[in-house]
Every structure is written in C-alpha cells, then in structure tokens.
Design a protein around this nucleic acid. Structure first.
Lengths: 229, 229
DNA sequence: CTCGAAAAAATGGTTGACCAATTTGGCGCT
DNA sequence: AGCGCCAAATTGGTCAACCATTTTTTCGAG
C-alpha cells in the first residue's frame, strides 16, 4: 500500500486533467487537446494519461470517441451531490479524521446497545484477523473489516450505509507520508489493545464505554498521523 | 456518443468481476485469481480486464500489488450502500432517528469548533426563517435548512456529504402518522427554543454545549414521534 | 537433512507498435 | 469555383512483448 506509484500517478493525473479543464475554460461540448498533446504538456506517459481519462470518463466528466477526440461532458455527475471520487479529492486528511471521530464513537455506542450475539462473534473474528495480519496491507484490510463489523453491529442500515460512504472516501484519500518501520504490525501495536477494549465494551453492552474506547482508538490513530492537536 | 463499445465492455467487465467476488465467496483479504486466469475464465482481453480492475481499485473494492496479486478490500460500495431509494425502503423511522442522534450532535460539536462568522450568520437567518414559517410544510423545509447550515458550519465536506445522504433518506421516509393540531407551529413550539440553544452554543464556540443542545433537540423530536423510550 | 543462494515461475505494470475510426488536404473533373 | 474522391494525417483503442516485483522451486554445500 505504500508502494503504489501507479495509483498515485493516476490520481495526480486525474487532478491535473481537472485543472486543465477548469483553467482552460473548457465548457461542455468543447474538445480537449489530443492525447499526444496532453502527454507532452502534462509530462506523463500515455498509459498514465489514459488511465486518468478512463476514470474521468467513468465519472461522466468527459466522453471520448475514436478519430474524433475527447470532449467535456455536459454537467451531470460533476455537480449535484458530488461523486465519492470527487469528494475524495476535496477532503483533507484532517477532515476525514474529524468525520471519523464524529461518526464512529457514536456508532460504537449504538453497537453496544444493539449488537446481536452473532455480531459480537463477527467482531471477535475480525479482531483476531487483525492480530494475525502478516503485512500492513493485510492489517489495514482487516482493520477495515473490524470497523465495519462495528457498523454492522449497530443493526441500523442507515448507519451502515453512512459508514461505508465514509470508508470509501477514507480508502481513496492518499496517505502518502506514512512510514513503516516494520513489515507488519508489532505484537504490541496500540490498536490491538484498543480493538480489544472496543470489543469488550460492546460485548458488555456498555454504550458509554464503547463510545469512549472508539474515541480513544481514533484519537491514537489521529495522533499517530498528525501529532497531537 | 452513441457508439461506445469500449465503455460498455468495461462496464460489463466490472459487473462480471463483482459477480466473481460475491459468488466466489471472497471475503476481505482474500486473493482473487490472477489476471491471466481471469481473462481465461471470463473470456475477455487483458486490456479490458485491467480497465475493470482499475475501476474496482479506484472504487476501493480491491487492491493490487505487483508480484503478489489482487485482493478483495474491505466491504465496498456494492454491498453496504445500496441506492438511497432502496435504503429509504429499508430504514425504519426508529433507525433513522438513531442515525440522526448518532451523527448530528457530533456535527454540532464540530460546528462549534469550526464555524466561520459567515456560517453563524447563515445559522441565524435559517433560525429566523423557521420561526416565521406560515405552514408546517414551510417549517419543515426551513428546519432542514437550519440543520444543513449546522452541517455546513462544520467546514468539513465529508460531514456535509454524509449529512446530505442522511437527509435525503429522512425526506424519503414516510411520516404518515403525524397529526397536526394547527396550521403552523405555535410561537412556543419547543424546537424554536432548542434551535436557539444550538445556535447560541455554536456562536459561543462551546462544543459540548452544542453537542448537548442538538442531542436534546433531537431527543424532543424523537419523543414527540415515538413517545419516551 | 537443513539452509541459503540462485534460478525459474508467477504476478501485476509499462511500452511501443500497430489497429480502427474520423478528419483533413490534395488532386482531378466539371 | 465547386464538388467528389482518395490518400494522408490525426484521433483514441488494442495488442504482444517486455519489465519490475514477489513467490516458489531447485540445487549445492555443509
């Protein structure tokens, strides 16, 4: 996850293209410069450019036609509620963390009030997989699963939906500066203990303890990323 | 514009991959078959497959690593978030209220921390319009505006987006049993005072008071709808 | 038999050549 | 001068070979 230059390149290319469109004064229906011109002016390979164009096309911002060119689409997906991928470009890591701190402790509280026995079992399984992760990539996927298990334990489809939206943005936001000292989490990784405390509070049906445990956990994550503030 | 076979191929490939993931019983962290296997079993070119994988990766459903393979990410958009209209059918009024109680007090707290002077002015205007509403319909629209002004005051695009999703579901959920005794809210309608208290706490930059005031307000709304519980 | 190094195989990623669709320009005819 | 045809140029799309990373297997030494 730390070495994905292609994905970073693609996101940067997407951003660069958006700048071209907005700063170039292109309006819907206008034809953009050809691919061969763009790779020259933007200084990227055609492969990277095409990936970015694919993404913009999929988001509905442009349309392309062989032999004709690439055109700015009519305003559709780009206005209104904003697509998740666009949102990802706008959200700062701090905003993301604040949003998590706003939603997830309250969800942990709801989980403590509403979790079924099955949901608790799933939480335990997810917690265990986090501990057993062999790489940071795997850990992060399992961490996601743990948090989602909390959202599922709320037994509230709307909260689950909001969590998933939040989580998608979270995954799309670039965390470029995270430096890892090891291949995988240490056995005494802070989050393991914090997961345990969240789990214990939910299992004990203690809403305020669950709320506090999740808040502490996310506070630790936040402090690790940003330093205390 | 009418002939985009390549885009159709890509969308079909995306759908096919999602079927592979869900029907194949893959859970987060699981490794998918290699690209060369998938092009064989799905009967598509590698180019098409890679475009689809690019899209799934960008949507956060999978992650890929050279030499390792392609892995299912934590639950993506396809499983949790359904469309808003589907969600509106599934959400119970109680779940909706619990979701509001989970998110909006925390947003009020963020608003108290982050509101600009302009945002406070907009809050005041929205509060005033609530008081001046001539019908319940108008009151509810202005009430919406007041709550959205709180979300805007958080200065966090992600929280605003989550609020908007929540609010769309809220507007779509049928509140069929609400009986009104009057044409419009009484001048001593509880929510007027509660709006005032939310506004005052945000203006005073008092996060815990804002959190408590919003929680009280939504608690009143909830009690009115469901009785105390 | 075990271990470590090297080679081979497997994995996703990139590149340059070529292909398919469209536009442009040149030429000949009226 | 205008029109039509055709070749060349331009445009986005595809392909096979190759590249970079990781895993697995093989081989030789102790």
């Amino acid at each position: 996850m730390l070495t994905r230059p292609d994905q970073t390149d693609r996101d940067e290319a997407i951003a660069a293209l958006r700048v071209v469109i907005s700063d170039g004064g292109y309006v819907p229906g206008d034809r953009l410069p050809s691919e061969r011109e763009l790779i020259g002016s933007l200084g990227m390979t055609r492969n990277t450019l095409r990936k970015a164009l694919d993404a913009l096309e999929r988001d509905g911002e442009i349309w392309r036609h062989v032999g004709k060119g690439t055109f700015v689409a009519a305003h559709g997906a780009s206005t209104g509620s904003g697509s998740l991928s666009q949102l990802s470009q706008q959200v700062t890591p701090v905003q993301l963390m604040r949003a998590r701190l706003s939603l997830e402790p309250a969800m942990a509280r709801e989980a403590a009030l509403n979790a079924s026995d099955k949901a608790v079992i799933r939480l335990k399984q997810a917690r265990q997989k986090c501990r057993e992760s062999a790489t940071w990539d795997e850990y992060e996927a399992q961490d996601d699963s743990f948090h989602r298990a909390v959202a599922e334990a709320t037994d509230n489809v709307l909260l689950l939906s909001l969590f998933d939206q939040l989580n998608q943005v979270r995954r799309a936001v670039a965390w470029n500066n995270v430096v890892r000292k090891s291949k995988r989490p240490d056995p005494d990784h802070t989050s393991f203990k914090e997961h345990d405390e969240i789990l214990a509070a939910i299992e004990a049906r203690n809403p305020s303890a669950a709320h506090a445990a999740m808040r502490t956990h996310l506070g630790s994550v936040s402090a690790r990323l940003f330093g205390d503030y």
